[in-house]
Design a protein around this nucleic acid. Structure first.
Lengths: 314, 314
DNA sequence: GATGCTTACGATACCCGTAAAGATA
DNA sequence: TATCTTTACGGGTATCGTAAGCATC
């Protein structure tokens, strides 16, 4: 058993069992990949992959069990390298933060600025992605920190922390009839064509839920991934918008009005997540602390620990 | 980085940084060991070991961080092999249970008999050891299951479960004056020379505690590792004994009397422990279940899971 | 002087990639 | 037929063990 074999197993699962693709991803030959798999299977004395003739189709049951362990070993191999870097180049390295448009655009600029000042030699990669993609990046180690409102809570491989809470708000073109409705009601909003976020993005679930519970079926004429797009179409008069309130800027968005709406929609909580078992450099803890001062390194490390002292359920 | 290097790092720490010994333990040459360490240090760009001239003395700080990860990787490597065996030879393999004299002699015979019947082809190694040694064996994978009254609870690397509770009892030679004292009191016991367990064995701490709290300082004239030795000397009249009550057998121990003592000493709880992250074969779960029926595979697996669903302290 | 670590060097085994052949869609 | 996997084979590299050289105790 060697690391190349483990990498191959891992990548084979990731790449849908196409060994040619695996070979390319690992910068080696298909023949080598094929042989490595065979060697490992021989060594272990069982088949890891379901085959149909010469094609690989999926994992066998032992393959599935094994794959989980392999993933953890590869994570640890990355961890070893991170630890080494941590000590050889204290303030030098790379930090990958995976986050959504909304956070990258409205919440993080403040944090990134301060982080850059504190760690000028750290290469900060702000990777913009969908919530699902963020989770995937954390899982396979492509990202160190994930920040999003969706998809991060309740995954047992992650530890996540609340970053900040926010509300949706209704935006309308200046002079729109809704401006006169005070206080604003869901019923009034539901009468107009709506433009808001895609499903699975920026609290869209909460919006749908709110209307459903109140018994209204809004006419969502368009959905977008980010508030900038939504605002553009609201300005064009295609409908009224529902966006995260921090996306409205009275200075820039002269043609729009934001209507007080905190009472309409429930609070959303944006979370910061890291993968359990993923080694974090010192400056990664600093980044989290810059987001939310209460999330000190001690707090985060404490939450990452396997379990606090106790002994099972007894 | 390769597995041989990791094994060498691990073994170097275990063997007090004597590379010659490490080489012997791993059945390789000392020169190879030396080179592997150097290669890995070069690859990582830092020193893992504190050196004084040519001698290795200990781990550097990065070495310590790394060592923990290395240990987990080697554990996973063993896990992979266990998983493979699990599937290639379902009812065939080895199970190592590390336990103390008391458990091996009085609690486990019943379990072992039934286990042997159910899994005749599993090689069961019942390894008798001190509580500390049991913990060490679990930690480095030499044992699958540990059973003892001491040293297993409250270690975060373990998950432990209560197996059964028991009390100490006073034993005396037949015809001893104490037989007349009913109910038996600590004060009366403390007036006689005592023979009981060594410190750190079979609830000795609880005995000391009980006397201390009652304000007596018993005269412990002898301590032994197991009840058989204690009983031998009690028979010889060197003193009265305090042993686990299940160690007394009215049939065999004709020359001795056990005095009702449940009210004198608190309850001891013998625990079953397994190491977090150590893969257990199906029959290992069966063994635990034979010990205590409520500890089903589902229960044990549930307790071994990293954490139950939730997301850190928030 | 005994033990222990490092370096040098030659033999071996392992890993990789090319190429050809066989299987699958 | 095009795509994909396996097998065969040769070249290169890394690993291993012997042996010699040097510190440390």
């Amino acid at each position: 058993m060697n690391f190349q074999q483990l990498r191959i197993i891992h990548e084979t699962v990731r790449r849908n069992f196409n060994l040619t693709e695996v070979a390319n991803a690992l910068f080696t030959s298909q023949s080598g990949v094929s042989k490595h798999i065979k060697d490992l299977e021989d060594e272990l004395g069982l088949e890891l992959f379901v085959r149909k003739g010469k094609r690989l189709l999926g994992l066998t049951e032992p393959g599935r069990e094994l794959s989980a362990v392999v993933d953890r070993m590869l994570m640890d191999a990355r961890n070893i390298k991170s630890i080494a870097e941590q000590f050889s180049n204290k303030d030098h390295g790379q930090l990958t933060v995976a986050t959504t448009h909304t956070q990258a655009r409205y919440a993080l600029p403040r944090v990134v600025t301060r982080f850059k000042q504190a760690y000028p030699r750290v290469h900060l990669m702000l990777h913009q992605a969908s919530p699902g993609e963020i989770a995937a990046m954390l899982l396979d180690g492509r990202a160190d920190i994930g920040i999003a409102t969706e998809a991060l809570a309740g995954v047992s491989d992650f530890v996540s922390f609340p970053y900040y809470g926010w509300h949706h708000a209704v935006i309308v073109p200046a002079g729109h009839a809704l401006e006169a409705v005070t206080p604003l009601t869901l019923e009034a909003v539901a009468e107009h064509p709506l433009i808001t976020y895609h499903e699975g993005f920026t609290g869209r679930a909460k919006i749908d839920e709110t209307f459903a519970q109140a018994g209204f079926t809004p006419d969502i004429v368009m959905s977008a991934l980010d508030a900038d797009v939504i605002k553009t179409y609201v300005e064009l008069g295609l409908g009224i918008g529902i966006v995260a309130s921090m996306a409205y800027d009275a200075e820039r968005d002269r043609a729009l009005r934001m209507l007080p709406s905190d009472h309409l929609f429930g609070e959303n909580v944006t979370r910061i997540a890291v993968r359990r078992g993923h080694f974090l450099r010192g400056f990664a803890y600093r980044f989290i602390e810059l987001c939310a001062p209460e999330l000190s390194e001690a707090v985060v490390r404490g939450a990452l620990r396997p379990e606090t002292g106790s002994d099972g359920p007894f």
